[in-house]
Amino acid sequence: MSGPFAALFSGLAWIASLIDPLCGPIGVFRWFGAGTLLACGDAGWGDEIAYGFLVTASLAIATLPLGLVVGFFIALAKQSEERSLRLAGNIYTTIFRGLPELLTLFIVYYGLQILVQQFLATVGYEGPVEINAFVAGMIALGVVFSAYCSEVLLSAFKAIPQGQYEAGDALGLHRGATMRLIILPQLIRIALPGLGNLWMALLKDTALVSVVGLPDILRQTGVAARVTKHAFEFFGIACILFLILAMISSVVFSALERSTRRAEAGR
Protein backbone atom coordinates (compact mmCIF):
# COMPACT_ATOMS: atom_id res chain seq x y z
CA MET A 1 0.00 0.00 0.00
CA SER A 2 2.66 2.46 1.05
CA GLY A 3 5.20 1.37 -1.59
CA PRO A 4 3.62 2.93 -4.69
CA PHE A 5 2.68 6.05 -2.76
CA ALA A 6 6.18 6.50 -1.42
CA ALA A 7 7.54 6.03 -4.93
CA LEU A 8 5.01 8.54 -6.27
CA PHE A 9 5.90 11.11 -3.65
CA SER A 10 9.64 10.72 -4.07
CA GLY A 11 9.15 11.03 -7.81
CA LEU A 12 7.11 14.20 -7.34
CA ALA A 13 9.73 15.57 -4.94
CA TRP A 14 12.42 14.83 -7.52
CA ILE A 15 10.49 16.67 -10.24
CA ALA A 16 9.86 19.57 -7.85
CA SER A 17 13.56 19.75 -7.03
CA LEU A 18 14.36 19.80 -10.76
CA ILE A 19 12.06 22.72 -11.57
CA ASP A 20 12.58 24.53 -8.28
CA PRO A 21 13.00 28.15 -9.38
CA LEU A 22 15.06 29.10 -6.31
CA CYS A 23 17.40 26.23 -5.50
CA GLY A 24 17.02 23.80 -8.40
CA PRO A 25 19.66 23.20 -11.08
CA ILE A 26 18.55 26.42 -12.77
CA GLY A 27 17.57 28.19 -9.55
CA VAL A 28 18.19 31.83 -8.82
CA PHE A 29 19.90 31.20 -5.49
CA ARG A 30 22.01 28.37 -6.95
CA TRP A 31 23.46 30.66 -9.60
CA PHE A 32 23.58 34.07 -7.96
CA GLY A 33 23.49 33.25 -4.25
CA ALA A 34 26.59 31.07 -3.96
CA GLY A 35 28.95 32.37 -1.32
CA THR A 36 26.33 34.69 0.19
CA LEU A 37 23.76 34.15 2.92
CA LEU A 38 21.41 32.81 0.27
CA ALA A 39 23.55 29.89 -0.82
CA CYS A 40 21.77 26.56 -1.18
CA GLY A 41 22.65 23.68 1.11
CA ASP A 42 24.26 23.99 4.51
CA ALA A 43 26.27 27.10 3.66
CA GLY A 44 23.31 29.46 3.45
CA TRP A 45 19.60 29.91 3.82
CA GLY A 46 18.64 29.48 0.17
CA ASP A 47 17.16 26.02 0.43
CA GLU A 48 15.22 26.82 3.63
CA ILE A 49 13.67 29.84 1.95
CA ALA A 50 12.94 27.79 -1.18
CA TYR A 51 11.10 25.29 1.02
CA GLY A 52 9.12 28.13 2.57
CA PHE A 53 8.21 29.37 -0.90
CA LEU A 54 6.92 25.91 -1.76
CA VAL A 55 4.90 25.72 1.48
CA THR A 56 3.30 29.13 0.93
CA ALA A 57 2.39 28.33 -2.66
CA SER A 58 1.01 24.90 -1.81
CA LEU A 59 -1.04 26.25 1.10
CA ALA A 60 -2.66 28.84 -1.15
CA ILE A 61 -3.23 26.30 -3.94
CA ALA A 62 -4.67 23.74 -1.51
CA THR A 63 -7.02 26.31 0.03
CA LEU A 64 -8.38 27.58 -3.28
CA PRO A 65 -10.56 24.58 -4.31
CA LEU A 66 -11.87 24.20 -0.75
CA GLY A 67 -12.85 27.86 -0.56
CA LEU A 68 -14.33 27.89 -4.06
CA VAL A 69 -16.55 24.85 -3.50
CA VAL A 70 -17.77 25.97 -0.07
CA GLY A 71 -18.26 29.51 -1.35
CA PHE A 72 -20.27 28.24 -4.31
CA PHE A 73 -22.66 26.32 -2.09
CA ILE A 74 -23.02 29.26 0.27
CA ALA A 75 -23.79 31.52 -2.67
CA LEU A 76 -26.45 28.99 -3.75
CA ALA A 77 -27.86 29.02 -0.22
CA LYS A 78 -27.96 32.81 -0.14
CA GLN A 79 -29.95 33.05 -3.35
CA SER A 80 -32.31 30.21 -2.51
CA GLU A 81 -36.03 30.80 -2.02
CA GLU A 82 -35.92 29.11 1.37
CA ARG A 83 -35.66 31.68 4.12
CA SER A 84 -33.84 29.53 6.64
CA LEU A 85 -31.16 28.65 4.10
CA ARG A 86 -30.64 32.32 3.22
CA LEU A 87 -30.41 33.25 6.88
CA ALA A 88 -27.86 30.52 7.61
CA GLY A 89 -25.72 31.63 4.66
CA ASN A 90 -25.86 35.26 5.73
CA ILE A 91 -24.81 34.40 9.28
CA TYR A 92 -21.80 32.55 7.88
CA THR A 93 -20.72 35.50 5.74
CA THR A 94 -21.27 38.07 8.46
CA ILE A 95 -19.18 36.17 10.97
CA PHE A 96 -16.25 35.20 8.79
CA ARG A 97 -16.03 38.49 6.94
CA GLY A 98 -16.11 40.43 10.19
CA LEU A 99 -13.49 38.49 12.13
CA PRO A 100 -9.82 39.29 11.66
CA GLU A 101 -8.11 36.48 9.75
CA LEU A 102 -5.59 36.07 12.55
CA LEU A 103 -8.36 35.59 15.11
CA THR A 104 -10.10 33.06 12.86
CA LEU A 105 -6.82 31.20 12.59
CA PHE A 106 -6.34 31.11 16.36
CA ILE A 107 -9.93 30.07 16.93
CA VAL A 108 -9.58 27.23 14.44
CA TYR A 109 -6.13 26.21 15.68
CA TYR A 110 -6.86 26.17 19.40
CA GLY A 111 -10.51 25.22 18.98
CA LEU A 112 -9.60 22.17 16.89
CA GLN A 113 -6.98 21.26 19.44
CA ILE A 114 -9.51 21.38 22.29
CA LEU A 115 -12.12 19.48 20.28
CA VAL A 116 -9.71 16.74 19.26
CA GLN A 117 -8.39 16.49 22.80
CA GLN A 118 -11.88 16.14 24.23
CA PHE A 119 -12.81 13.57 21.60
CA LEU A 120 -9.68 11.53 22.28
CA ALA A 121 -10.26 11.80 26.02
CA THR A 122 -13.68 10.19 25.62
CA VAL A 123 -12.07 7.42 23.57
CA GLY A 124 -9.52 6.97 26.32
CA TYR A 125 -6.37 8.57 24.98
CA GLU A 126 -4.84 11.11 27.33
CA GLY A 127 -1.89 12.89 25.91
CA PRO A 128 -0.69 16.00 24.19
CA VAL A 129 -2.38 16.68 20.88
CA GLU A 130 -0.81 18.84 18.24
CA ILE A 131 -2.83 20.07 15.30
CA ASN A 132 -1.08 20.28 11.97
CA ALA A 133 -0.54 23.97 11.23
CA PHE A 134 -1.04 23.36 7.51
CA VAL A 135 -4.48 21.83 8.05
CA ALA A 136 -5.52 24.52 10.54
CA GLY A 137 -4.33 27.22 8.13
CA MET A 138 -6.15 25.57 5.26
CA ILE A 139 -9.40 25.45 7.21
CA ALA A 140 -9.15 29.01 8.54
CA LEU A 141 -8.14 30.57 5.23
CA GLY A 142 -10.65 28.42 3.36
CA VAL A 143 -13.46 29.59 5.61
CA VAL A 144 -12.52 33.26 5.15
CA PHE A 145 -12.04 32.80 1.40
CA SER A 146 -15.40 31.06 1.03
CA ALA A 147 -17.20 33.86 2.88
CA TYR A 148 -15.84 36.47 0.46
CA CYS A 149 -16.18 34.11 -2.51
CA SER A 150 -19.87 33.59 -1.82
CA GLU A 151 -20.45 37.34 -2.09
CA VAL A 152 -18.59 37.53 -5.40
CA LEU A 153 -20.47 34.53 -6.78
CA LEU A 154 -23.79 35.89 -5.50
CA SER A 155 -23.38 39.13 -7.41
CA ALA A 156 -22.31 37.11 -10.45
CA PHE A 157 -25.46 35.00 -10.13
CA LYS A 158 -27.52 38.17 -10.05
CA ALA A 159 -25.90 39.30 -13.30
CA ILE A 160 -27.19 36.23 -15.13
CA PRO A 161 -30.68 36.92 -16.48
CA GLN A 162 -33.61 34.69 -15.57
CA GLY A 163 -34.06 33.89 -19.26
CA GLN A 164 -30.96 31.71 -19.19
CA TYR A 165 -32.61 29.37 -16.67
CA GLU A 166 -35.82 29.42 -18.69
CA ALA A 167 -33.88 28.57 -21.82
CA GLY A 168 -32.42 25.59 -19.99
CA ASP A 169 -35.93 24.49 -19.02
CA ALA A 170 -37.13 24.98 -22.58
CA LEU A 171 -34.37 22.73 -23.84
CA GLY A 172 -35.53 20.06 -21.44
CA LEU A 173 -32.34 20.09 -19.35
CA HIS A 174 -32.79 19.21 -15.73
CA ARG A 175 -31.58 21.62 -13.08
CA GLY A 176 -28.13 20.17 -12.57
CA ALA A 177 -27.45 20.17 -16.29
CA THR A 178 -28.71 23.74 -16.65
CA MET A 179 -26.34 24.80 -13.91
CA ARG A 180 -23.40 22.91 -15.38
CA LEU A 181 -23.86 23.67 -19.06
CA ILE A 182 -25.46 27.11 -19.10
CA ILE A 183 -24.99 28.97 -15.84
CA LEU A 184 -21.52 27.95 -14.66
CA PRO A 185 -19.58 28.98 -17.78
CA GLN A 186 -21.12 32.46 -17.66
CA LEU A 187 -20.73 32.62 -13.89
CA ILE A 188 -17.00 31.94 -14.11
CA ARG A 189 -16.58 34.62 -16.75
CA ILE A 190 -18.42 37.24 -14.72
CA ALA A 191 -16.86 36.32 -11.39
CA LEU A 192 -13.27 35.94 -12.57
CA PRO A 193 -12.02 39.48 -11.82
CA GLY A 194 -13.50 39.34 -8.32
CA LEU A 195 -12.06 35.89 -7.74
CA GLY A 196 -8.67 37.16 -8.89
CA ASN A 197 -8.73 39.81 -6.18
CA LEU A 198 -9.71 37.20 -3.61
CA TRP A 199 -6.85 34.98 -4.71
CA MET A 200 -4.41 37.84 -4.16
CA ALA A 201 -5.85 38.40 -0.69
CA LEU A 202 -5.57 34.68 0.03
CA LEU A 203 -1.94 34.66 -1.07
CA LYS A 204 -1.19 37.47 1.34
CA ASP A 205 -3.16 35.90 4.18
CA THR A 206 -1.05 32.73 4.01
CA ALA A 207 1.72 34.75 5.68
CA LEU A 208 -0.39 34.75 8.87
CA VAL A 209 -0.15 30.98 9.23
CA SER A 210 3.53 31.38 10.05
CA VAL A 211 2.34 32.65 13.44
CA VAL A 212 1.14 29.17 14.41
CA GLY A 213 4.39 27.62 13.24
CA LEU A 214 3.94 26.69 9.61
CA PRO A 215 7.38 26.91 7.92
CA ASP A 216 6.30 29.24 5.12
CA ILE A 217 8.23 32.10 3.53
CA LEU A 218 7.79 34.46 6.45
CA ARG A 219 8.67 31.90 9.10
CA GLN A 220 11.79 30.68 7.28
CA THR A 221 13.06 34.19 6.57
CA GLY A 222 12.24 35.14 10.17
CA VAL A 223 14.36 32.27 11.50
CA ALA A 224 17.18 33.22 9.15
CA ALA A 225 16.88 36.86 10.24
CA ARG A 226 17.09 35.95 13.90
CA VAL A 227 20.09 33.68 13.43
CA THR A 228 22.12 35.89 11.10
CA LYS A 229 21.00 39.32 12.42
CA HIS A 230 20.42 40.46 8.85
CA ALA A 231 16.74 41.13 9.40
CA PHE A 232 16.23 43.79 6.74
CA GLU A 233 17.73 41.70 3.96
CA PHE A 234 15.77 38.58 4.80
CA PHE A 235 12.41 40.29 5.27
CA GLY A 236 13.12 42.21 2.07
CA ILE A 237 13.56 38.86 0.33
CA ALA A 238 10.26 37.70 1.82
CA CYS A 239 8.58 40.79 0.34
CA ILE A 240 10.17 40.16 -3.04
CA LEU A 241 9.05 36.53 -3.03
CA PHE A 242 5.47 37.56 -2.26
CA LEU A 243 5.67 40.15 -5.04
CA ILE A 244 6.84 37.45 -7.43
CA LEU A 245 3.91 35.24 -6.44
CA ALA A 246 1.56 38.19 -7.01
CA MET A 247 3.07 38.90 -10.42
CA ILE A 248 2.78 35.26 -11.52
CA SER A 249 -0.84 35.17 -10.43
CA SER A 250 -1.72 38.39 -12.20
CA VAL A 251 -0.23 37.00 -15.42
CA VAL A 252 -2.17 33.76 -15.00
CA PHE A 253 -5.40 35.57 -14.23
CA SER A 254 -5.15 37.91 -17.19
CA ALA A 255 -4.55 34.90 -19.44
CA LEU A 256 -7.59 33.17 -17.90
CA GLU A 257 -9.72 36.24 -18.38
CA ARG A 258 -8.66 36.50 -22.01
CA SER A 259 -9.48 32.87 -22.64
CA THR A 260 -12.91 33.10 -21.01
CA ARG A 261 -13.69 36.31 -22.85
CA ARG A 262 -13.29 34.60 -26.21
CA ALA A 263 -16.78 33.20 -25.76
CA GLU A 264 -18.42 36.59 -25.65
CA ALA A 265 -16.41 38.14 -28.46
CA GLY A 266 -19.15 37.55 -31.03
CA ARG A 267 -21.76 39.57 -29.23
Binding site: D205, L208, L218, C239, F242, L243, A246
Partner: peptide, 14 residues
Protein backbone atom coordinates in the same frame (compact mmCIF):
# COMPACT_ATOMS: atom_id res chain seq x y z
CA UNK B 1 1.38 43.08 -3.39
CA UNK B 2 2.99 42.05 -0.12
CA UNK B 3 1.33 40.96 3.12
CA UNK B 4 0.92 43.62 5.79
CA UNK B 5 2.62 41.38 8.32
CA UNK B 6 5.75 41.12 6.16
CA UNK B 7 5.87 44.91 5.85
CA UNK B 8 5.49 45.21 9.60
CA UNK B 9 8.36 42.79 10.21
CA UNK B 10 10.46 44.63 7.66
CA UNK B 11 10.00 47.86 9.58
CA UNK B 12 10.05 46.53 13.14
CA UNK B 13 12.86 43.98 12.90
CA UNK B 14 14.50 45.12 9.69
Amino acid sequence: GTPLITQLFLVYYG
